[in-house]
Amino acid sequence: MSFDSKSSSSKTVCAALTLGKLGNITHKGWLYRYSGGSFLKGWKRRFFAISDERMYVFKENYHDSLHYDVIDLTTFRQVQQISTPRKTKYGFLLRSLRRPSVFDEPTGEMPESFEVELYADTEYSLNEWMSAISKVFVTMDLRTIQSTPLSSFDALVHRAGLLQPRVGGSILNRMDKHRATAAMDHLQSSSTLVSGSPDGVALTHLNGLGA
């Protein structure tokens, strides 16, 4: 597993921006990131800011600090906590790979994979960062759904039909079946059909109650 992505697919080039000029910031704070340069290799504490599906990297958190790197979040689809951290106990990983969905065009080629490993100082900070990045991914997925042409609906349904269903059906279906079975058992055990009424009308009496 790499410490940091070196692929051009995970980064983007944009005009120089200062932290104060960066608009629509949804989250910001300090993180540790591995620097693999020729000099002073190791984990560096940097200030990150999420804006417009990008993570801007600054050396300081001053208003006039100029960003020196950008991580394009649109090239990633997964964020997860690191089970065997290297810097602090509160690390998370950005990964480009995700499980196939009905919105993925079928292809026999393996997509390029790359990842970025980052660390927070506290558990609270870790959860805040993972939540903020997850919201970016949700926004991206919603935009994909909304931009899907109606003519592609049949193809989506076809691909969805090719997915293997979960054994026993979905949890909602299983709950409905359980409630229906329980209701039938209750009716059979708690009611008695009386067919000998004088008027020829069937009467129902609950067990334990008088006629």
Rank of each mutant, 00 (worst) to 15 (best):
D69T: 01
S101Q: 13
N173R: 15
M175Q: 12
L162N: 07
R46F: 08
F103W: 11
I25L: 00
Q188K: 11
I171D: 15
H178W: 12
N207C: 11
G168V: 01
A15C: 09
T88C: 00
D141N: 12
S35I: 02
L142E: 15
H158Q: 08
P100E: 07
I82N: 01
A120T: 11
R86V: 08
F3R: 10
E117D: 10
V201T: 13
H27R: 09
R46E: 10
F153Y: 15
R179K: 15
A16D: 10
G196W: 13
D4R: 14
R77P: 01
G29E: 07
V116M: 14
S113A: 11
S83V: 03
V102S: 12
D185Q: 14
D52R: 04
A155L: 08
N24F: 10
S147W: 07
I25C: 04
E128P: 05
V116F: 13
I50M: 03
S2A: 15
K89E: 04
R143L: 07
G208H: 01
V102F: 09
K89D: 06
S10Q: 01
D69Y: 05
D176E: 14
P106Y: 03
L203A: 12
G208M: 00
H205A: 14
Y34V: 05
F76A: 02
T12P: 00
I50A: 04
V194H: 15
F3P: 03
T75N: 12
K87I: 03
R77Y: 14
G210H: 13
G23C: 05
Q188F: 14
S2K: 03
T18I: 04
R46Q: 09
M130L: 03
A132R: 10
S134V: 04
A132G: 10
E60F: 08
R46C: 05
W30F: 06
T88R: 08
L94A: 01
Y56E: 02
R46S: 08
S134C: 07
S190G: 06
L22K: 02
K41M: 03
E60Q: 12
H186D: 08
G36Y: 00
I133F: 05
G42M: 01
S8P: 00
V201G: 00
Y34C: 05
S152L: 10
M1D: 12
G29K: 00
M140Y: 06
S7A: 04
M175V: 11
P85S: 05
N207S: 13
S8F: 08
I82R: 00
F92W: 13
A211E: 12
C14Y: 08
I171M: 11
L40E: 15
L162W: 07
M175Y: 10
T74S: 10
L22V: 02
S152V: 09
S125I: 14
H178N: 14
N24W: 11
A202D: 04
S170G: 07
F76S: 02
G200W: 01
Y68F: 10
R179T: 13
S51A: 05
R174D: 00
R86K: 14
T75P: 07
S191D: 06
L142Y: 13
D185M: 09
G161F: 07
Y56N: 09
R179A: 15
F58G: 05
V116R: 13
M184S: 14
P111G: 03
S38M: 12
S152Y: 12
